[in-house]
Design a protein around this nucleic acid. Sequence first.
RNA 1: CGGGAAAUAGCACAGCUUGGUAGUGCACCUGAUUUGGGAUCAGGGGGUCGCAGGUUCAAAUCCUGUUUUCCCGACCA
Length: 567
Amino acid sequence: MKATNLLIPTLKEAPQEAIIDSHILMLRAGLMKKLVAGVYTYLPLGLRVLNKIENIIREEMNFAGGQEILASAIQPKELWEESGRWKKYGPELIRFKDRHNHEFCLGPTHEEIFTDLVRNIIKSYKSLPLNIYQIQTKYRDEIRPRFGLMRGREFIMKDAYSFDIDELGLEKSYNNMYHTYEKIFTRLGLNYKIVLADTGSIGGNVSHQFMALSEVGESQIIYCPTCNYAADEEKAFSLLEKETKLDELKLEKVSTPSIKTCQDVAKFLNVELKQVAKTMIYYETERKEFSAFVLRGDTEINEIKVINILNSSEAFVRLATDEELENAGFKVGFIGPKDLKCKIYIDNEIVKMSNLIIGANELDYHYINANFKRDFDGIVCDLKKSKAGDICPFCGAKLKSERGIEVGQIFKLGTKYSSSMHCSYLNNEGKQSDMLMGCYGIGVTRTFASIIEQHHDENGICFPLQVAPYHVVIIPISYSDEIQKELADNIYEILKKHKVEVILDDRDLKPGFKFKDWDLIGIPYQIVVGRKANENIVEFKTRQTNVKEEVNYLIAIEKINKLIENL
RNA sequence: CGGGAAAUAGCACAGCUUGGUAGUGCACCUGAUUUGGGAUCAGGGGGUCGCAGGUUCAAAUCCUGUUUUCCCGACCA
């Protein structure tokens, strides 16, 4: 491709709308253009990269036994009502009616569609297992789209769904996808970590996320540097330093006038913050039910864990307000697990402590020397938010944290959709049985942004060869110079013949301008044809390392051919 | 949806306080000189100043409403 025929709307300045590097660079390099918030037009160079990413995913999915199909983004309301998500999904689901007043949505994900497809086609265990996928546009009316492709309202996702006859089959399908994802993200040149994840609104019981490591990531990863434990902060489980059990002292009620917060209580009674147990009351709005959660004063509660323990959904669980508490007879600021009239959940760190301070459920009073079992009871579970510095529950090392961009997530759905939507098969005994499903997503456009986030420098993008829009650019210093033109043209023709994706920068521009452009766009290799053109010598530059060497043009061509071969 | 900021040429911004001819740099077009890291000179094109209403002889500027965008929190690939 000749540069004069290519749409390369590079920008010298960063558009005001962009904050993070990948977003700025994608706009500056002319890879895409914003249409409205969270919706972009992919320009020629950007689309080439996108296609390459998709093709790598496609190759690996096919290799793993997946079969590609393509569903519509338009989905009928009826299927969503069957799964129960038409009500649950909320305003993020873009809904509309056709002229006959039939209701539809633009698919944010495709569990319903794929489940419906399979239940209509597959009748026998003989046709299972099955893994079908698509690479397709998804729509989510995000509250706040941001960071360009990181969180768009329209984005491209590869979504795969597996259907198996039993747990063992699901396990196999899940592991297959797990390893396929490892291959995909490795091939894409991403530095990533695999973490245990919460299943959120998709549902199911087991899930892993694939996180591209990056400062700008919206997820916090907790991981162990010694063993392999890694989890999303929402899901992470950790321990605190060991506590030695002390002799249980006598429970005593002490006056703590108007002293409500853990910090104040600790200060007032002159003890460490961790000796004070806090009792938080959550309200489940669907069942209109209060529940108490007891944690050490120096730890934070993880609300995802609360929602899961209550077996509810995010839409229905929140901290009770002071007003609600007062009306229900709770003494705000002095609530404690002793003699409390609601279900009580106790964080496992509390169990290891002795002689705690707890609220007395009486205005201006706390108990000191409260001990689990002897003075209060409840269901012991894991409630606290894990953070760096906590102890790894598996090997005892200190946990670390890192930020990540979620580029993929895999779920074991089990029968969540197959039972509600009657996706079943006849087994070898002629009995009807629900299929076991898994679903597996990759945010393709987000992966695109992540690659740039991990591969750029102060001059622009440094695309890994396998996803670069073109492999090499030939830059004649002066294309109007006959000798340079002839050599540049010659190299261009040879590389084209060798199926190398090559750009010839035939623009009549100052050399500096061209260099800046290609550095910004991040073409991996540059062949500069300059004053030594008469000796057939060119400069071969590697974008990633910025290493330049002067070589005969045939050697440069040879080098490129070798690099392409290894792809 | 809460909290903050902004909207003027393709991009970045000034002008607004104190109302009176629509501006600068980059980009774009023409010509000349330039050609190894975003050139110089000369000339030129491009704007209903987000939209609607109000105040005024007169509004980019003041007032009211509205829409959109960006940033911080809850969602998620």
